[in-house]
């Protein structure tokens, strides 16, 4: 069983059951289907960050770099007025993002601690300003995606990305796969060494493991999934702009992941939904929603030391 904790075994099926039937009770074009889709996409992004920060111990402030890349790579690669194949382009985008993660990772992973935080931030800011000032990618306005990809496999098409409900199920399916993927990876022999490296890097090296390679592999995995989330987000809204890879994006994702319960993986879903839910609530209640939002987060971090997942585990685990 890849879900080792009781809390996971209760919450994960519950969440996916509710999410699976949710659109059936809402109109296909309703605002809520779109909103929940966005939160699900964000959950994938936050989950990939939670893996890096909470499980590998790589506190990155440059994760949004890959979120933005996922969107921009599609604009760069795909012809403007032609519907390309979704699966093939997912493969391209993930492949190239992985390669970029491999190269940047080889540089940034030579540093640790505060220097790692700074250098990941620096690299993502570099890319931010590159796209911000670029003429061919619309500068700070970004680029529109006119044609959504088609999703046929061997001529069979069962998904229409223009249909919000279809798109919703695609993102839900992706979130489920991401969750299972991380759980499986962390349970593997590779995951054992990753866990060991996080707990005690010096000892792990003294046991003969090249911890740099393990960290690099994780960095590539996390970054690639982050890029995939960015790609989905770009498809949903039909545009990319530099705010995708702004540092605020990395920062917000980090807050969501901490709110959910750092390193719990499934906590990323809890954190993202809570954060977005609170924001939606406060936005509708008051003009000064940021003030309430900030206070709520501070309060939650003080009260729930190990995040929402940590609190639920304390209740359910025994």
């Amino acid at each position: 069983m890849i879900f080792e904790k009781r809390t996971e075994r209760i919450l994960v099926p519950m969440f996916f059951m509710v999410a699976l039937f949710l659109p059936l009770f809402l109109e296909s074009n309703s605002f809520f289907v779109g909103k929940v889709t966005t939160i699900i996409i964000l959950s994938i992004f936050v989950m990939s960050l939670d893996f890096l920060v909470g499980r590998v111990g790589l506190i990155t402030l440059g994760h949004a770099l890959f979120y933005g890349l996922g969107g921009y790579l599609f604009v760069i690669l795909a012809p403007e007025y032609e519907a390309v194949n979704f699966w093939i382009y997912t493969f391209y985008i993930c492949g190239i993002s992985a390669l970029i993660a491999l190269i940047t990772g080889a540089v940034v992973l030579r540093t640790t601690g505060i220097y790692f935080i700074m250098i990941t931030l620096a690299i993502s800011q570099m890319m931010f300003y590159y796209f911000f000032d670029s003429l061919e990618f619309g500068g700070d306005d970004g680029v529109f995606i006119f044609m959504k990809p088609e999703t046929s496999i061997f001529g069979l098409s069962f998904l229409n990305l223009d249909d919000p409900q279809h798109f919703y199920y695609l993102t839900l399916f992706s979130l489920f796969n991401t969750l299972v993927f991380f759980k499986v990876v962390l349970r593997s022999r590779f995951g054992r060494i990753v866990e060991a490296t996080k707990q005690n890097p010096d000892r792990t090296e003294a046991l003969g493991y090249n911890i740099f390679i393990f960290r690099l592999a994780c960095y590539v995995i996390g970054s690639t999934l982050g890029a995939y989330a960015g790609f989905l987000f770009a498809l949903q809204y039909g545009f990319v702009n530099p705010s995708f890879l702004a540092w605020e994006m990395s920062g917000t994702a980090l807050v969501m992941s901490i709110l959910g319960g750092l390193g719990t993986i499934y906590g990323a879903i809890l954190g993202t939904f809570t954060y977005e839910g609170l924001q939606y609530l406060f936005e509708h209640l008051t003009e000064e929603w940021l003030l309430f939002m900030g206070s709520a987060i501070i309060l939650m971090v003080i009260v729930l030391r190990k995040g929402i997942a940590g609190y639920l585990e304390k209740l359910l685990e025994k």
């Binding site: 499986v184 593997s188 022999r189 054992r192 060494i193 060991a196 792990t204 046991l207 493991y209």
Partner: peptide
């Protein structure tokens, strides 16, 4: 980690499969 897991971390290296992502440890 448990004691057996502590030793498994040390033992695992020489048996390979350290980059096997999918099979349970």
């Amino acid at each position: 980690a448990t004691c057996i897991e502590n030793c498994a971390i040390s033992a695992q290296r020489r048996f390979g499969g350290n980059f096997n992502l999918f099979v349970s440890r």
